[in-house]
Every structure is written in structure tokens, then in C-alpha cells.
Design a protein around this nucleic acid. Sequence first.
RNA 1: GGCUCUUUGGUCAAGCGGCUAAGACGCCGCCCUCUCACGGCGGAAACACGAGUUCGAUUCUCGUAAGAGUCACCA
Length: 493
Amino acid sequence: MKKTRTRFAPSPTGYMHIGNLRTALYEYLIAKSNGGDFLLRIEDTDQERYVEGALDVVFNTLKATGIEYDEGPGKEGDCGPYIQSQRRDIYKKYAEMLVEKGAAYYCFCTKERLESLKTSDEALGTGFNYDRHCRELPQDVIAANLAAGIPYVIRQKMPLSGTTTFTDAVYGDITVENKTLDDQVLLKSDGLPTYNFANVVDDHLMGITHVVRGNEYLSSTPKYNLLYEAFGWEIPTYVHCAPIMKDEHHKLSKRNGDASFFDLVAKGYLPEAILNYICLLGWSPSGNEEFYTLKELENVFSISGISKSPAIFDIEKLTWMNGEYIKRMDDERFLSMTLGTVEKVFKDANAAVPDSGILKKIALLVKTRINTLAEIPEKIGFLAVLPDYDNELYVHKKMKTDREISLQSLKVTEDAFEASPSVKDNWNSQAIYEFLIGVAEKNGLKNSQILWPLRTAVSGLPATPGGATELAEILGYDETMRRIKDGIKRLTN
RNA sequence: GGCUCUUUGGUCAAGCGGCUAAGACGCCGCCCUCUCACGGCGGAAACACGAGUUCGAUUCUCGUAAGAGUCACCA
């Protein structure tokens, strides 16, 4: 059994979006689930489209997600170089080999001629197909043109009749009429190969067993097969994947910032949650479990779970899943990721920064209440600065409070705190809670009639992360008292 | 336009001839509760359409419709 080898072959022409990343993931998983190798190859045969920095994005994304390649740029194996522009001579050799075999031919048509062909084809409302003008050029003409240094390309000589069938691991057998196949260019006039040609040559030379790519290549795959056959090379297993969609009609594109992996990270999504979610977009495991680490996926991933139809990227579900990842994360790691953010909230508000123990409590308080890391500041801002609020907040039917009860309740609470220094000395949520329950009972009030007004006074918000006593603990005795007094003042007016 | 592919709830999806058609997100309700959240329980919600094949089709075949891809010296 041949060792499974897959490759991720991005072209450095833009930023890496979620769709690219998912392709890389599947390629990686197919290799790893079979104990194989995953390679990275850079397809930069189009010098005009090179984008500065795009390569770093590829490297960084793979690094951040833990998708490690076994061979590739900077990690040379036996099949290097792994950057196509550095393999120039290889393609030319193989293209000429194809010419010798009679499966390809030199074409000296000018761009102008092709242009006019194209426009007349378009006028007919049909797609463009090369008219094979140079397909049967006499040997001596070819030799003369070559000797004269006339620019040329090498085209694939498609069979004029019959059909070509290929098998795709997800789509099954697909058959097309050979006469619909264009004599596509293999080697461009600049001496570099086209994607279609470089791909086949490199995949063969690099021992790739599974070709994984978007299904937009489905229709050019017969041409690949013909190429493999002309060379007498073994045809790899094709795995075409349906695209990830932005909505019903549009593919996810890098245009829309949020489609990029790093944009999501910047918005507070965790790499492992993103990876987990996009893996499920277009692939489904055999059971009902949805949470997988990369390592676990390496064991359970199977090509048979890949789906044929496009999947719409649902940020809501990603957000939920990200929240689950946050909840399941161990506290230590969560704190290391968020303490800085928490501290910054106080600094930005020009408020006194609490000591690290309190900072940790704040972070942990918020841990089960956020879905993305970016939600933290908005959730805790009130701890730094008490927001202005409406007294209506004190009115709550279910808590059985209104303005009057709240005013009375806050006064009772204030008095009770002042009369009991022991509470101040043992200022923690549990103790405060027990103390206030007692206060409520003594005054013939329901727990909620003490706690709701307190939570309101202390936060100025209808909803907060944590209850009255948790917030009081974090704010500390002095600030809590200050806010209680402030509430009393508001209610007194 | 030619060729190719796709089609199960709003979304992701299981299903591979016989099921009350899974599960998840979202939504709604109830419970828990010092607010919110977490958690628990429950609910509404789908086989694009039409012919076949078959004792029986979501599942197989063929049409139709709707979407998508492709038809470059781009990948």
C-alpha cells in the first residue's frame, strides 16, 4: 500500500479565507488519518498576481491552527523545491516530452488572433474554444518558427472523439465528451506552466495520492486524467469539495473581511473553535459528537463523510461553538488569554486597576457568559465606571420591587453594612449573601427585594455577569457603599 | 448558450428501499436562580416538483424547476 500523501497548494494571490483553510484541513486530515504526509506547495506561476505578504498569511494560519506540514518551503523533503517558480525547468522538460509523445503541440498563435477568435465566439453566445489552428502544423514550419524565436505556447492535444471518465471520491464517476475539451495551454509563452499543467506534474513528482480541491475544478479534471494517461502516470484519488458559501448565492470571499481566519481571531474566536466548526461545514462524523480537537479529527476523519453540496457559513453556530470552547477551557489558560483585556478596561476608563486577585475573579465571572473574547469589555465596563441609569431599573415585578421598596431596601442594606464591621472584614460573596439573607428576614423583606436593588445600584444595568453579592465582592466594600449611597440619592430625588 | 455538479426544517446535517425522517445552531415555552448566563426539560420547524422501477420510495432511474461551477498564456 502506497503511503498517503496530500498537499495544500495555495497561490500567493490573496489572503487566506476560511474556505482555503478548510481545504488545507481536509488535506491534512486525509493524510494523517492514514498515517501519511501532508505537504505545502506554493503555486506562484502567475507573476502578475503575486501579492506581498500573502505567503506569510499562509504560514501563520497553518501555524496558528496546528496544521503542520511534513514537507514544504523551509522544510525540504525529497521532492523540492516546493515553490513552483523555482521548478521552471522541470515543467518545460515534461511539456516537451508530451510533444514528443504526440499528446501536445507547439502553438504560435498571437494573442491578437486569439482575442479576435474569442470575440467572435462570444458574439455567437458560446464559450471560447481554441480553433486548433496550430494543431497540425508541419514539422518544418514548427522547426523554422522555433529557430526564428517566435513566441509559442504548448497546448494539450485533446482527443476529438470518445469520452473520458474519472472517479471522484465524493462525487462518484463523471463522464464527459472529449469533443467538449479545449486544447488548453500547458506551457505559457513566458516559459512557466499553467496551473493545470504544473499541478499534474508536481502532484506526480511529489507522490501525491489524494488530490483535494474545490469542486470548481471538477470540470477540468478530465483534462488532468488525459495528461496522467499521456505520461503513463498513476491517477491519484480525486476529492472535490463543495464550497463554503457566504449566503445562498455567494461563495465566501476574501473581499468581506470576516471570511478570513485572522479576522475571526481578531474578533475573539479561538483557532481551535474555528477549525472545529469549519471542519463540520461540509463534513460530518459518524456519530453525534460535534466537538473535536485536531488530534481527534486525525483519528475520526473519513472522506466518506464529505458532502457534495455547498454549505453556508453560519457565524451564529460558530459563535455558539466558540462559547462552548471558552467554557470548557481550563481557567489558567483562559486567564492567561484574558487578564490583559480585563485590566485594559480599567485603564482605558481611567479607573483604579483592581489587584490581580480581583482581576482574576472578574475574568472568571465572565467566562461562562461570553461567546467570543471580544465581548469582555462591554460586559465588565460597569465595574470600572458606574453607568448613568434610569430609576426604572429598580422596578421589577418578579423581584417584587419598585422605587419605594428599593429605596427602603438600599437604606436597610447600607445601615446593616455599617452596623456590622465583621462583614466588611470578611468581604466575600458567600458571606455577604448570607448576611443579606438575614437582613431581609429581619426586615420582613423577600431576598429578591434586598438583592435586586443592590445589584441595580451597584451596576446600573438590567443584566450583569454575576449577582449582587458577587459584584459587591469585586467592587470592594468602599465602592459598594459608594454606589449604594449613590442609588439612595437617585431614588430620593 | 454547451458541458458538469447540487437539491432533507431558517442554517449545518444523519439517512444509503420499509424509520413516529436523527442530532446540532437559532427560535419559543417551562424549570433552576440574588439579575444575566450556565444547566435541565419540552416545543414549533424539512425530504423542490412530476413520472417511472418496486409489494413499498427521502433513498434507484428519467424528466422538470431552481441554484452553483466551468468554458483564460488565473489559479
